[in-house]
Simulated scan of single mutants.
Amino acid sequence: MHDTIDSAIKEFILRQKMFFVATAPLAAEGRVNLSPKGLDSLRVLGPRTVAYADLVGSGVETIAHLKENGRIVLMFCAFDGAPKIVRLHGRGESVEPGHADFEPLRREMPDLPGLRSIIRVECDRISDSCGFGVPLYEFIGDRSQLTAYAEKKGPEGLRQYQLDHNAESLDGLPGVELAKP
């Protein structure tokens, strides 16, 4: 357990090429969501605060779950070098365009096409573990399909996609704000 995201944890987190985000609705029959994240999308904003760029995608589970209950965990695994896992448990929020904090946070993020929100997490539990069971992988490069898709769609195409596909979660929870009638 760690009190803060100290310099060693911060360096470890920022070295990872991929991390995982998990959320769940309150309903027992609701679906737990686990999403891999990549690209240069995460920033450490403070000793207990992280944020990542959330790009338009086929689902909106993380946003919907955070709006309902705020529970989130981010997990970082070392796929090369010394074995290690870091988990950041906390309360998250989806900071979407129109939110007072969106523009200041956007300036902290990389310029990625298709940005629909910034997920900000206030960590209440910071822990690491051995990672002995995590396999070794070689990073070859980022995939270009997601950003190329967003560039091809353009702002209006992305907006329409969100209206059609990001209005609510698989369990019917509210999704992105722009998708609300």
Rank of each mutant, 00 (worst) to 15 (best):
L173H: 09
R116H: 05
D6S: 09
R71P: 00
Q160C: 02
A100M: 08
I85W: 00
V95R: 07
A64Q: 06
G157E: 01
G59N: 11
R143G: 14
H99E: 08
V21M: 04
E96I: 02
G30V: 00
G172C: 00
Q162Y: 08
S94Q: 05
P104W: 08
S127L: 13
P110K: 09
L163K: 12
V176Q: 06
P47M: 08
Y137S: 05
P25Y: 05
G70C: 11
G46T: 10
L55T: 01
E168H: 14
Y137P: 00
K10N: 11
D101Y: 06
G46H: 10
K153N: 08
F139S: 05
Q160T: 12
H2W: 13
Y137R: 11
C123M: 08
Q145W: 12
A53F: 01
I85E: 11
D171E: 02
L146G: 12
V50I: 15
L136A: 13
E122M: 05
R87K: 15
G141K: 01
V44S: 05
V50G: 13
R43V: 12
C77Q: 10
G90K: 07
E138A: 14
S144P: 00
L14P: 08
T4P: 03
K152A: 15
S58Y: 10
E177R: 15
T4Y: 12
M109S: 08
R107S: 14
G30M: 00
D54T: 02
G81M: 04
E61P: 01
M109K: 09
D101Q: 14
A100R: 15
D6T: 09
L146W: 11
R91W: 06
E168S: 14
F79W: 11
M1E: 11
P174V: 07
L42M: 14
L45M: 09
